[in-house]
Write a protein that binds this DNA or RNA. Structure first.
Length: 570
RNA sequence: CGGAGCGUAGCUCAGCCUGGCUAGAGCACUUGCUUUGGGAGCAAGACGUCGCAGGUUCGAAUCCUGUCGCUCCGACCA
């Protein structure tokens, strides 16, 4: 490609609505343009990089026995009602109506469609296992799109769905995808690592996310450098000890705490109740019903764990107006010892198991209770791990200190089980003629997000530093004179022809611009190798080969093409 | 949805508080000349419903009301 024949609208300054470096570079390098919030056009160079990421994914999916299909973006609500997700995923579903008033959903993912296909087309164990995948536009009504392609209303996702006859088979399919993902991200030049993950609205019981470490990531990951344990903070556990049991305390005693409404205030003079001897009482509305959650005063509730453990779909903190009629006191004086309606469930964090000599609210404004023994004095409905781990806690596997860092989620693999196959009738007949639901898995990669994650991870002060495998062009030839009869241009065209014939993606910067402009643009876009052809080196019979991420080397003209090919192979 | 901020040329921004000549600068764009190894110089030129609607006023980019859009924090997030 000749530079003047394509369109590479580079910007000297980043538009003011871009916040993070990868978003700024996507815009400055002319890779994307915004049409509206969370909605982008891929410009010629951005699309080339995107296609390369897609192709890597396609090759690895095919290698792992994936079979490519293409499912509709426009989906009838009926199948979403059958799976139950018309309601549970309602907040992210784009809903549109056709001219006759019929409603459609724009696909945010495709479990319902592929399971319907399986229900209709797969009847026998002889047809299994199968793993279908597609790379297509997805739509999510994100409350708050942000950071360019990172969280968009419309984006490209690779989604795959496996169908197996047995749980063991499903595990094998899962493992194949897990391995394929590891290869995909490595080939994209990304340092991505798998972590244990919550399954969210998708459902299922086993899941990993692939994370790219980045300060701008929207996720937090707890990990152990000693043994390799890693989990999303929403899922992570630690080996932190339970609350110490003390001598059996005296009977419960109510004491006045006027104006004290925080854990911290109660831990100070004159009360001096350490946070780790307090029970924090939180009231949540889980699927429209109030529930009480107890965690230790020095711990933080993990809402995702809470929803996952109790099976609740919609979870939110109760408002003061909901709490007062329920327990008779305002937040700050709440407890689960007295005055708790019998039908309100009480969930407690496991770290409180066996705890005694605790202090908690009296459900009476301005009063607390001490000498509370949780198992003696509170009717706990169920014990769960509900707390959020923090850095420095002992690893649940090896006991070494956990660390926490931020990361971008680029892929997610789920073992689904039979949730969708049962609801949508994806059954098969086994060897004995018994009718069984297929055991499913589903596997997603945010393709456009992956592209941005590559830039977020690989850039410097001058611009993008593309990994060779996904660069829009691998080589940029930069003649410093572009008139047709100049030696630089003749040689540039010769190199262009030779490298193109060898299958190299080459762009020739034939713009009549000053050298500085061309070098700055080439660095900004981030081509892995630049060949500069200028009078100074040509006079010595040489050209300059400049890898984007290392120093230039002068090479004899005759040896230039071979030298570039050698760099591309390295 | 709660909080905060911003909408003026393709991009970055000034002007607004304290209303008043024909609405500005830099970059980008067009033409010419010079220049040519890291975002050139000079000259000429083109580019604006000052987000939109309404109001106040002799007069509104500027003040008021509404509305739409964008960004950030939170909530949310497959």
């Amino acid at each position: 490609m000749y530079w003047t024949k394509t369109l590479i609208p580079t910007l000297r300054e980043a538009p003011s609505d871009a916040e993070i470096v990868s978003h700024k570079l996507l815009l400055r390098a002319g890779l994307i343009r915004k049409l509206a919030g969370g909605v982008y056009t891929f410009m010629p160079l951005g699309l080339r990089a995107l296609r390369k990421v897609e192709q890597i994914i396609r090759e690895e999916m095919n290698r792992a026995d994936g079979i490519e299909v293409l499912m509709p973006a426009l989906q009838p609500p009926e199948i979403w009602e059958a799976s139950g997700r018309a309601e549970t995923a309602s907040n992210v579903l784009f809903k549109v109506k056709d001219s006759s008033g019929r409603q459609w959903f724009l696909s945010p993912t495709a479990e319902e469609v592929i399971t319907t296909i399986a229900a209709n087309e797969i009847n026998s164990y002889r047809q299994l296992p199968k793993n279908f995948y597609q790379i297509s536009l997805k739509f999510r009504d994100e409350i708050r799109p942000r950071f360019g392609l990172m969280r968009a209303k419309e984006f490209i996702m690779k989604d795959a769905y496996s169908f197996d006859t047995t749980d063991d088979g499903a595990m094998a399919s899962y493992k194949k995808m897990y391995d394929a993902y590891t290869r995909i991200f490595a080939r994209c030049g990304l340092k991505a690592f798998p972590v244990e993950a919550d399954t969210g609205v998708i459902g299922g019981n086993y899941s990993h996310e692939f994370m790219v470490p980045a300060e701008t990531g929207e996720n937090e990951v707890a990990f152990c450098e000693a043994c390799g344990y890693a989990a999303n903070i929403e899922k992570a556990t630690s080996g932190i000890p339970k609350t110490a049991v003390r001598e059996i305390g005296a009977a419960i005693e109510k004491f006045a705490t006027p104006g004290v409404v925080t854990i911290e205030a109660l831990s100070k003079e004159p009360y001096k109740v350490a946070a780790n001897r307090q029970i924090k009482t939180l009231i949540y509305i889980a699927d429209s019903k109030p529930v009480i959650i107890l965690i230790r005063g020095d711990d933080q509730l993990n809402e995702t764990k809470f929803a996952a453990k109790t099976g609740a779909v919609a979870v939110r903190p109760a408002t003061v107006d909901e709490i007062v009629p329920l327990l008779g006191a305002k937040p700050g004086s709440l407890g689960a010892v007295v005055n708790v309606p019998a039908d309100v469930k009480i969930y407690a964090d496991e770290r409180l198991q066996g705890a005694n000599d605790m202090t908690t609210g009296a459900n009476e404004d301005g009063f607390h209770l001490k000498n509370v023994s949780i198992e003696r004095d509170i009717k706990v409905t169920a014990w769960f791990d509900l707390r959020t781990v923090s850095a420095g806690e002992p690893c649940v596997k090896c006991g070494k200190a956990l660390k926490i860092r931020r990361a971008i989620e680029v892929g997610h693999v789920f073992k689904l089980g039979t949730k969708y196959s049962e609801k949508l009738g994806a059954n098969f007949l086994d060897e004995a003629g018994a009718r069984k639901p297929a055991v499913m898995g589903c596997y997603g990669i945010g393709v456009t997000r992956t592209l941005q994650a590559i830039i977020e991870q690989s850039n410097d002060k001058d611009g993008v530093v593309w990994p060779l495998s996904v660069a829009p062009y691998q080589v940029c030839i930069t003649p410093l004179a572009v008139t047709a009869d100049s030696e630089a241009m003749k040689l540039a065209e010769q190199f262009y022809t030779e490298l193109t014939a060898k299958g190299v993606d080459v762009i020739l910067d034939d713009r009549d611009e000053r050298p500085g402009v061309k070098f700055k643009d080439a660095d900004l876009v981030g081509f892995p190798i630049r060949i500069a052809l200028g009078e100074k080196s040509l006079a010595k019979g040489e050209v300059e080969i400049k890898p984007r991420s290392s120093a230039f080397q002068s090479v004899k003209i005759e040896a230039a093409v071979e030298a570039v090919l050698a760099l591309l192979k390295a």
